[in-house]
Design a protein around this nucleic acid. Structure first.
Length: 214
DNA sequence: AAGTAGCT
DNA sequence: ATTG
């Protein structure tokens, strides 16, 4: 017996190897440069202060941050250094233009560094003003198991293994669906430089339109 | 609940 | 499903 093929929500798109290896290296260089200005920090959960297993930073006029006291939010400055986030690299703005038809540019690009054992629990991106604006993400480095669910929390999910250079777009129905990362396949890529990312791992870049304050 | 546990 |  063969099972049903994976079913993804309307509006979900996967572009395998959108970026060739040389382009991935150039984008990685841009990320490393940005991290010199806005270093990775350890985010924590609202109220409990439980640490997330990924380290984060941002590009763009706004960055998504979380900590115990302030909760989930977008803000223009780094929560540790207080400095403005670095500008969005042109390559990412071009990507947004090429894979979406949204009229406005992204205001935020969250940088998530996953190490071996890092996970991202199922969630919906809902801190943006207009949830019709698409979300675009880029994978760099080690493979990851991405899980896509539905609008209801705790429902069935479909797994998709993402590779370095892949681009995922969540628009339409998919924009409001739960998604997360259940595992990292350590050592499957040598893209990330040891100097900036000790132990390697995976970097995910996620662009969003934030909209009116909130 | 962007946490973990635990099941399919 | 669960607490704070």
């Amino acid at each position: 017996m063969t099972g049903s093929p994976p079913r993804f929500p309307q509006g979900f798109a996967h572009h395998p190897l959108y970026f060739a290896p040389g382009e991935q290296a150039a984008l990685t260089d841009a990320v490393v440069e940005g991290l010199m200005q806005a270093p990775l920090y350890q985010p924590t959960m609202p109220r409990t202060g439980a640490p997330l297993s990924v380290l984060m930073s941002n590009f763009g006029p706004l960055g998504w941050v979380t900590d115990r006291d302030g909760g989930y939010r977008y803000q223009p400055d780094h929560p540790v250094t207080g400095a403005a986030w670095p500008a969005l690299p042109d390559t990412l703005l071009q990507l947004w233009h090429d894979v979406t038809d949204w009229p406005d540019p992204p205001e935020a690009c969250l940088i998530n560094w996953y190490r071996e054992g890092s996970k991202m629990g199922a969630h919906v991106d809902r801190d943006e003003h207009d949830l019709r604006a698409p979300v675009v993400s880029v994978s760099l480095g080690d493979d990851a198991m991405f899980r896509m669910g539905g609008r209801a929390r705790g429902g069935p999910t479909t797994g998709l293994r993402l590779h370095s250079g892949d681009v995922v777009v969540m628009a339409g129905e998919a924009r409001q669906c739960h998604h997360g990362v259940s595992r990292i396949y350590a050592g499957t890529s040598a893209l990330l430089p040891e100097s900036a990312f000790p132990g390697g791992g995976r970097v995910n870049l996620t662009m969003r339109v934030v909209g009116a304050p909130g």
